[in-house]
Design a protein around this nucleic acid. Structure first.
Lengths: 209, 209
DNA sequence: GATTTTTTTAATCATTTGATTAAAATATTT
DNA sequence: AAATATTTTAATCAAATGATTAAAAAAATC
């Protein structure tokens, strides 16, 4: 089990050291609350180096943001466009993969959602999430099963909201959930691991005609 | 249907004008990204007045934060401790109330979750969410029904995560969801209103033994 | 209506913070 | 080894930003 910091791939080059530090702090505090000096300190470099390599805070942020978003979508892409697996299998794999990802990097969802909130972000259109998700093989399978009466009729958006809501929300709300009961971080992780099995079962229950 | 701004209760007094402006901007941009000058401009007052009435940005923020958190918990409190209603009824009421609340004030969840993320917040302990939720009549009913074999066995936390996840998450992720498909804000609101019926049904499905 | 208190304003301060610059240190090339 | 290019640093700048102050305006009190 590696810590967030150790996890940061080989920071051999100075550029990587800065990027890894930036990722860590941006993810934890968001753009506005992050000081370039904090990044420099975390990276163990002089502040001027940050601007030497990345020109500005904003450009550095854009790089981190793009990579984070791509990384987060990568899991979905992989699963959604696999033409070999069943609908059920996709649900199981998606939930399980995401819970693993979120246990490792619990700050990612709140980071992404906060930063995408207002920004008239070209990123979202750049990445073309719509194409990736709504035109995926997974959605085709889903619609097909609906037409064949195998699963209940439902707007696919409801379906996606339910999967993501049940999977991602606990991590977003973990500070509150942890204070709700007296669960330790280890207990919380156990609960999340239980959900790898539970969520797919609940989801399947929603699909029964 | 009032806009967020008009909704702001009677800003008769200067103090109220400032608080309402602060609430609007803090909710939308978060603490770090908010400039006291923006609040002053939104309130239509001189910047010095903000400090005259509230001493500092931080003190003003603390007031808004406390009120927002209390407001958000108020809905739960009301429903959870009603000893007249059934478990099913509580679920329906809670989901319906929250969806109404979130349609009116969609910025609240991301605001609360972002700001509570790191802060070693005394607020959370001050408000004592634990007492409100985990020792509520609702949880008693839930545990009782489990013991009697009326509903499936499940950690109550899973149950709360599922209700809140399915209810709140779509609003947090709405910027992305809206770009996912081509739904208009009106379409989105329709979807959310559908969920007032759908979510309680899905939840009940999870509880079947 | 004069006096005192409260509210509001314009101007300014001090600190923070993103960014730059010129020089030093290090690495690379010739 | 000398010359050149690259990387790093310390010092500093300029703008943004939270906060204060002293004076003006308005309201309340006598």
């Amino acid at each position: 089990m590696k810590s967030q910091k150790e996890l940061s791939k080989t920071d051999h080059s100075t550029e990587d050291k800065i990027k890894n530090a930036a990722r860590l702090i941006f993810h934890k505090k968001g753009y506005a609350a992050t000081r370039t000096r904090d990044i420099a300190e975390e990276a163990g470099i002089n502040l001027a180096l940050l601007n030497y390599y990345f020109r500005s805070k904003e450009k550095l942020f854009d790089i981190i943001m793009l990579e984070s978003l791509q990384g987060f979508l990568h899991s979905i892409k992989e699963v959604f466009n696999n033409e070999e697996t069943s609908l059920e299998n996709k649900i199981e794999t998606l939930v399980s993969n995401y819970i693993d990802l979120l246990i490792e990097q619990p700050d990612i969802p709140l980071f992404l959602l906060s930063e995408l909130r207002n920004n008239p972000n070209e990123l979202v259109s750049k990445i073309n999430i719509k194409q990736v998700l709504m035109n995926s093989y997974f959605i085709k399978q889903f619609k097909h099963a609906m037409n064949d009466g195998i699963i209940a009729t439902m707007n696919p958006l409801h379906f996606i909201m339910n999967i993501l809501g049940m999977t991602v929300f606990p991590f977003i709300a973990s500070p509150i959930l942890k204070s709700l009961s007296d669960i330790s971080p280890a207990d919380f992780e156990d609960l999340m691991n239980q959900r790898k099995i539970l969520i797919p079962n609940w989801i399947k229950g929603m699909l029964i005609v």
